[in-house]
Design a protein around this nucleic acid. Sequence first.
DNA 1: GTCAAGAATGCTGTATACAAGAACCCTGTT
DNA 2: AACAGGGTTCTTGTATACAGCATTCTTGAC
Lengths: 235, 235
Amino acid sequence: MPLYTCSMETRRADGVREALEQMIVTGELSDGDRLDEMSLADRFGCSRTPLREAFQALAASGLVQLIPRRGAFVRHPSLGEMVEMFEVMAELEALCGRLAARRVTPELLAELWATVTACEAAVAAQDHDRYYAENERFHLLLYRAGGNAFLEAEAARLHRRLKPFRRLQLRVRGRMAQSLAEHRAVLAALRDGDAEAAASVLRDHVAVQGGKFNDLMASYRQERLRPDAGLALRA
Amino acid sequence: MPLYTCSMETRRADGVREALEQMIVTGELSDGDRLDEMSLADRFGCSRTPLREAFQALAASGLVQLIPRRGAFVRHPSLGEMVEMFEVMAELEALCGRLAARRVTPELLAELWATVTACEAAVAAQDHDRYYAENERFHLLLYRAGGNAFLEAEAARLHRRLKPFRRLQLRVRGRMAQSLAEHRAVLAALRDGDAEAAASVLRDHVAVQGGKFNDLMASYRQERLRPDAGLALRA
DNA sequence: GTCAAGAATGCTGTATACAAGAACCCTGTT
DNA sequence: AACAGGGTTCTTGTATACAGCATTCTTGAC
């Protein structure tokens, strides 16, 4: 039990931050929208102080841009920026895989296999939501398997930021099955201690290349056009 | 000319953040130190509001830990965390190199060569400070050469965070010359468009392995023991 | 003498008040 | 009619006031 009993949700600012993050990620707030402190304070039933705190946190994650004396503006990544982020994500995951091939514990490897089993069931049932959840679990476990806590945190941070754009990719026909096969290939490489194979498979698994670019583009457009698209994301 | 005339240093909170960052990075503030809002407000001649803003920004960069209802605490990376950060930095730089081998512009390549020339002069004069400055320039240019703005920002962010620990490494005898040779090897690979060579050299250039681990350990200890060590860092 | 419970103090989180800069509008001029 | 200049209004940045939780000190009991 940690020393500091993390009293959750006693800070209003954290709740505001999370709410705004959802509103941005789901597209309820569009790119370039100005976040008005007073009207949002009214909406959330609090003063400007928690809002300003939330703005700063969001600015740190890159979701809003803070311009001095001008205000906070929603900052959606462009298609090009998203491709850039996936390029970095691919490399971070590849590094996780390379390290995990040497460092993964039997317990984590078992947990990773469990997600693959769960994914199989989801594919059989064509249950996108369940596949999505287990897919995320696989990746977060993989970050941990690298045995580098800093890398784990950075990878999880970027993963979280790319979340809304990964989801719709999975809806593409056959993508789930292919994704699952790649997960299996990663775990086989980890089992064999083949660092380079794990890295290579993961890089290609995450990278936006070939047909996946078009998938991403479609996902991007849909996210932008459907303000309510994110409601299912909370699962 | 950008639309928003970035009026610099009009926000007191930014100045406070920078000052605190210096105090933490230079070791004036030790690990675990609690940052008292009121006494620091007195010291900086402002109210608690800008300080709290600065605390949040520092927490976002990982320099302080914010515990709800408890306060802000200085958070120095442990030796192990530093090794972890260098592990990630090595991979990010390797990625920059791999991408730059295909994307670098002639102009940037020329600028990169210029830093090598400047480094040569610094090595000949045994001028650590100048070598340090040009070395940093080389790496920042390399991040840009990758042609991925997101990667550039992330790499620069991590580079900045590792700054205080990189400096003393260079004081090790012979390290400057070896570092310079590695820079040359990187640029040769970029010139030849050899992505894998560039990535490989950069990974080894940055990674903490073999004797460099001991250098880092020494650097770590010295940073911690000498509160005034960072005065020369501002150059 | 030690430990526990309660009160008192101090600090954080939030609300509000105030000052200064930015945006907007209106008017006057060319 | 278009543009420049000034003034007004609105918003941000900062200071201060207030409420609630955490720590600590004190006091009493075992």
